[in-house]
Design a protein around this nucleic acid. Sequence first.
RNA 1: GCGAAUGUGGUGGAACGGCAUACACAACAGAUUUAAAAUCUGUCGGCGAAAGUCUUGCGGGUUCAAAUCCCGCCAUUCGCACCA
Length: 937
Amino acid sequence: MYNFKEIEKKWRNYWEENDTFHTDIWDFSKPKYYVLDMFPYPSGVGLHAGHPEGYTATDIISRMKRMQGYNVLHPMGYDSFGLPAEQYAVNTGNHPNGFTQKNIETFGTQLRSLGFDYDWSKTLQTSDPKYYKWTQWIFKRLYEDGYAKYVDMPVNWCEELGTVLSNDEIVDGKSERGGFPVVRKNMKQWVIDQAAFAERLLEGLEEIDWPESTKEMQRNWIGKSVGAHITFKIKDSDREFKVFTTRCDTLFGVTYCVMSPEHELVDLITTDDKKEEVVAYKEMCATKSELERTELNKDKTGVFIGAYAINPVNGKEIPIFISDYVLASYGTGAIMAVPAHDERDYEFAKKFNIPIIQVLEETTGKVYENEKTKKSIVAIVYDRENDKYLTINWKENGGRLFIGGTRHDNESAIDCAIREIEEATGYVDLKFVCEAFKINHHYYAYNKDTYFNIEATPLLFEIRSNERKKQNLDYDENFVVEWVSKECIENEIKDELHIKSLDYVLNPRAMENDSTHINSDFLNGLNKEDAINKMISWLEDNHVGSKQINYKMREWIFARQRYWGEPMPVVYTEDGQIHMLDDDELPLELPELEDYKGHNGKAPLENAIEWKKYNNRGISGIRETSTMPGSAGSSWYFLRYIDPQNDNEFANKELLKHWLPVDLYIGGPEHAVGHLIYSRIWNNYLYDKGLSPVREPFKKLVHQGMILGANGIKMGKRYPEYAVDPMDIVNNYGADTLRLYEMFMGPLEASKPWNQQGVEGAQKFLDRVYRLFVSGKIKDEKNDNLEKIYHQTVKKVSEDYEALAFNTAISQMMVFINNVYKEDVFPKEYAESFVKLLNPVAPHLGEELWEILGHKNTIAFESWPTYDESKIIDFEKEIAVQVNGKVRTTIMISADDSEDVIKERALAAENVIRHIEGKEIVKIIIIKDKIVNIVVK
RNA sequence: GCGAAUGUGGUGGAACGGCAUACACAACAGAUUUAAAAUCUGUCGGCGAAAGUCUUGCGGGUUCAAAUCCCGCCAUUCGCACCA
């Protein structure tokens, strides 16, 4: 076994002493490559098994690009504000920075021991005042430009943690950390108006090379929806309110309105007799946690508040309810309810017995010219006792159907159905169950030779007894009445109208499809899109509404009642004004405290009595004591790496212009909507101000998959016995083995279980390589046996690295080594190239082997090997011969064989003859260099 | 409930629509060894004595040819979750 301990230590020292990986940031003579890792939070436990995965991937790319002649920037730093350090300070009374620095030291040692090629002269910490000076500086600009605001708004308050939480810090109504209850509460808050960037964020997604699933998640998070605002007047009042809807075309189907319980108008318009009920309901909602609200979402609740709204399009009076299924924080906090065509409104209307008006009608069948119109029914009769349905079987004259029939003038659908059931089948003891939405059906009636356009009402009855009268049939009604099972119906009823009718009566629900408008005056006959456009014009013409775009994305709450974060550069003056510190007063540093715990929901900085007082340059007041959230510092760190020591600006503009965007960014998928949206927002803002040269900061993004325990379950608290400490692997097997193993486990993006024997396998391979290099087989000679596999290997490894397909690159290197083992001579030229290919994955061994080959300098800047495509192509090749798509034999062909020759040889093969004997050859397909397929009959 | 991803030997996984199971792990056998470890060589999807034949979650479809493309299910994972 090669002495990995000694070798790895030797080369780590070499790199450090020679400053090998220092990036000259001002060297613009080579093309640049900026490769970035998501920087870690320096927790007390050090690196976990997942860290080396993403970090090795970027390291491989970084090292390859450097060898390919790029000036590479590959930095590392620490997201060093955070809760564990805060908890430590609260518990021990010590400043969290000591704890943080100790952890950073551990991380630094561990990262160095893995052999990553970071330029440590460019490291940064978000908790360093030299860094957060600029976080404060950017925040100040956001305020000046109106994106950061101080507003009164409902927030997620966690009593236990004593702080406000953002939506992504809450899981199932409880705090992500600790699982404490979270309630909604109104507070004055610092927020950043994210929605102002929504449109640009959506557009930007089109131009970046990111995983489609992450882009989709961001789109959902932004949650754009295009619709309209509609103003409803309140009856007997001069008040009015707006609703937001995406289906303004269904305005004629509105039968009630709902306001969220928190809506400002509720108290003003509730009638006296409803006050008590409304107050009780509002109280119930206020004490309900988010968790309870979502758990109860199957069962709609609400109360009528006594007031009526006027539908602007037809003047109808409609009742106003409050219900917590309408959210205060989305849209206008009030909706128009169309129970016929919205699932939630349908449920609510059913529960509260509110009328339902159908304004959309589905169409079935084919439309013909010269159709006759009529109204009709489809009656479905169910026998509960025997679980059978009543059908009539027309046999070859139309198949199996339910009972259908035409409505007489002024006859209701129910009456018609009862009459038709009796006439056709004789059954009379029926119980009406329900009626579904009308369906517009087009068909051809054979017996009448006529095309029909009918409006059919589906109805469901249950039969109470077998009481039966005589059927009353026309001369041409020649069918059999049959009770059949559901299964029989599914197999035998083919008529679209009847299938739909059954579905709708058995599963009554709102009909939300895009279909034709009815009962809608000037919208009748239009489809969804046309109707929406026409309605918006009507609303605008009549000044009762307009087109409106809404986003689910809320304001980003930008303050935490914690100590260990960036202080806000904000002072509230005695006359109630907000004053931002001057730029030369930044950074505003955190003071030392006696007590790091907040009391009674107040921020810990409230304990800093002297620090809080501000009196400078003629302004006096009190400082803001909340600090910025953890995501503040991480939203722009990729800009600072480029110029981390700069005290005059957050980074030199010329440098930013040269180095941005980040060419490759690798990190976990858990940041898909948090950090990766916030970063895009900050960069977008800076771009607009001319402070960042690119709109999108991360050109290509890849998420590494999770490394699971050997049991296939997430490592961590639940199964500590399956947790893997990467440092154990480094000590027992070597850093190169760990790197190789994690890259060989499987595709970078996939989640994969740990396998200790796999680690040993990785080590075995490295040792096998090492033994080959000290075996004496390497000679300054040629070996033609290795020529082809050598060129193939250079090609595949180069391409696979580029595509981040490290597992297949490694397998190719293994194939190459297996081939070399069978030979007596390993040409030095090939050996040198092989070391260059292996080096990015196993850099310590790479340097050592390079030295064994007689080189004095580091391999880091040696040029990347090239390959000769012509050496890869075979002159002679074995291809498969198929008969009817099944491989029967293989034949040898030469590059200059004509198709006729190949055909002849294929047909002459013994096994082929056996399979085509006595059959007619339909055709022969020859795909050059690939396959021959003989089709026979 | 909605959205996205994934599903291939005992295991991790390979495979531009063109010979499914590369590479590795495990297992088995042999060589070496006093013995073991290490190393080297070989076997290794199922059924079958063999010729064969079946096989990429399940069911259809497109194609000369499907793990790969299309449709419908099922399972797992991850997001979102009354967003009007």
